[in-house]
Measured scan of single mutants.
Amino acid sequence: MAAGGDHGSPDSYRSPLASRYASPEMCFVFSDRYKFRTWRQLWLWLAEAEQTLGLPITDEQIQEMKSNLENIDFKMAAEEEKRLRHDVMAHVHTFGHCCPKAAGIIHLGATSCYVGDNTDLIILRNALDLLLPKLARVISRLADFAKERASLPTLGFTHFQPAQLTTVGKRCCLWIQDLCMDLQNLKRVRDDLRFRGVKGTTGTQASFLQLFEGDDHKVEQLDKMVTEKAGFKRAFIITGQTYTRKVDIEVLSVLASLGASVHKICTDIRLLANLKEMEEPFEKQQIGSSAMPYKRNPMRSERCCSLARHLMTLVMDPLQTASVQWFERTLDDSANRRICLAEAFLTADTILNTLQNISEGLVVYPKVIERRIRQELPFMATENIIMAMVKAGGSRQDCHEKIRVLSQQAASVVKQEGGDNDLIERIQVDAYFSPIHSQLDHLLDPSSFTGRASQQVQRFLEEEVYPLLKPYESVMKVKAELCL
């Protein structure tokens, strides 16, 4: 049975990233139509530049190519590739079939990587351009969430054990800070992308030097003109047959890092959902379990974690691919890159769409948070109580021993009897502590235990987050809708 299948058929496997999760716009960027249309555009740009620099290419040939950029006979191309065992030459023939007058000058002087690699770089750039505003929107939604809850005390956790208090907004800023680093890295790697350009079979530009009869300047002009037509500021000066596969490492490393950030955020949300302090959106008709109707599973956060793990592992592909590119190139890269580049971007696209949807509907339960604080705060307040007693004339050592005994009794009630923490009640009825009984409410005010959390939130948002989001103001209103 021949390899390949009808990918629109229910009898043929289709990647869930495309069929179930990723956005239509990201799927289109990695589609065959987008790819092969870009090949034709690159052939047109090459012909236009070659004509401008004096090669015998007519206006009629150029116009014929322009008129057929979208006229792609995919069936013919597939048949040609089956016959020739070469995808680029299959599309040269297919393009030439609908451009008979231009057929002889299509791909003039070029090698397969002229269309293959340059198209990949265009796709990487455009895919990054799709991700950047999506990530900015996630940051914006979380920034709104953090600002609104900047002063809401909550129990902090280290080692997932109760620690000092923080605020809900401050905790959210930990998430935002990681995503801001990801946004900066995505922008950097996007701006650092260079075009492969017009380089020939081993990167020496020998074929173009021959076409222009040894004119170095025209060869350099050709490279520059096509690079500018493709919208790049610069091209690699040095290439082998391909652009260095280190570029793929750079791009997928940034995406993998984004995956790590999203995994951490969504894990926190899942843990908070278990504590009943916070939940992701839950639709009115949504079913959490087929057997347990009360369940409210954090399905979206779980999906993000599941896909983020996949995204983090994909960076190993370009690392290994770059390491086995012998001399000017081997074909070890080809099949692998067809999979890992598309999957990385479709996965990143999915987790950003999902995280935006989550961040637009996060639900906080202040009463649950308050109750958990009441359970733990008495123990945390013991040092403040000791200091207040010393100020009232008591002995630190005597007070410490009193607190120690009462704390152990209260802990026994919590752990052995399943009761509430009654340390404060014990202190309130103990005559030894009568000098500070009137101060206990103040000493137990949760806001006095959150330090500068709310001020940190305000400063972080104003100095770091809002300036970073400013270039994306025009796209901030787009909502994230999930079908599944």
Rank of each mutant, 00 (worst) to 15 (best):
A2G: 06
G4T: 15
G5Y: 13
S9G: 05
P10C: 14
P10E: 14
P10N: 15
D11A: 08
S12Y: 09
R14L: 14
R14Y: 15
R20Y: 00
Y21Q: 01
Y21C: 02
Y21H: 04
S23A: 13
S23Q: 07
F28L: 08
S31N: 15
D32L: 13
R33Y: 12
Y34I: 07
R37D: 07
T38G: 04
Q41L: 10
L42D: 00
W43G: 00
W43V: 00
W43T: 01
T52G: 12
L53M: 10
L53N: 07
L53D: 00
L55Y: 06
L55D: 04
I57S: 03
T58C: 09
D59L: 09
K66C: 10
E70V: 09
E70R: 14
N71W: 10
I72M: 12
I72N: 11
M76I: 12
A77E: 07
A78Y: 11
E79K: 12
E81V: 00
L84H: 07
R85W: 11
H93V: 14
T94F: 06
F95H: 07
C98F: 12
P100H: 15
P100M: 09
A103T: 14
A103I: 09
A103C: 10
I105G: 09
S112F: 02
C113D: 00
Y114W: 15
G116W: 02
N118Q: 02
A127C: 08
L135Q: 15
R137Y: 08
R137K: 13
R137C: 15
D144E: 14
K147I: 11
T158S: 14
F160Y: 12
F160R: 04
A163M: 00
A163C: 02
T166Y: 01
T167Y: 00
V168N: 03
K170N: 03
C172K: 05
D178W: 04
L179V: 11
M181P: 07
M181T: 11
M181F: 14
Q184T: 14
Q184N: 11
N185I: 06
K187F: 10
V189N: 10
R190S: 09
R190Y: 08
R194S: 12
F195W: 08
R196D: 06
V198E: 01
V198T: 13
V198R: 02
G200M: 01
Q205W: 00
A206L: 09
Q210W: 00
D216I: 06
H217L: 14
E220W: 10
K224Q: 07
E228N: 08
K229T: 05
R234M: 14
A235K: 07
F236L: 10
I238M: 07
T239C: 09
K246W: 04
V247H: 11
V247K: 10
E250Q: 12
L252Q: 08
V254K: 12
L255C: 14
G259L: 02
G259P: 03
G259R: 00
S261T: 09
V262K: 01
H263R: 03
H263G: 07
K264Y: 04
L271A: 05
A273S: 12
L275W: 12
M278Q: 04
P281L: 08
G288V: 02
S289N: 01
S289T: 02
K295Y: 00
M299I: 12
S301Q: 04
S301A: 06
E302V: 00
C304H: 04
H310G: 07
L314S: 11
P318H: 00
L319E: 01
Q325W: 04
Q325H: 12
A335F: 06
I339S: 13
A344D: 04
A344R: 04
F345V: 10
D349N: 08
T354D: 05
N357C: 11
N357H: 09
I358P: 01
S359G: 12
E360K: 02
V363R: 06
Y365G: 03
Y365K: 05
P366I: 04
I369G: 08
I369L: 10
R372C: 03
P378L: 05
P378I: 07
F379V: 02
F379I: 05
A381F: 06
T382Y: 04
T382K: 03
E383D: 03
E383Q: 00
N384R: 07
I386A: 06
M387V: 08
M387Y: 06
A388E: 09
A388K: 05
Q397I: 08
H400P: 02
E401R: 14
K402D: 08
K402A: 07
K402M: 11
L406H: 15
Q408N: 14
A411R: 07
S412H: 15
V413G: 08
V414G: 02
Q416E: 10
G419S: 09
G419M: 15
G419K: 13
D420P: 04
N421S: 10
D422K: 10
S434T: 13
I436C: 05
H437C: 11
L440N: 04
D441T: 09
H442S: 09
L443A: 05
D445N: 13
P446E: 04
T450Y: 06
V457G: 03
R459I: 11
R459Y: 09
E462S: 12
E462G: 09
P467R: 08
L469Q: 04
K470S: 14
K470Y: 15
S474M: 14
S474T: 15
V475D: 11
M476L: 14
M476R: 15
K477R: 14
L482E: 12
L484T: 15
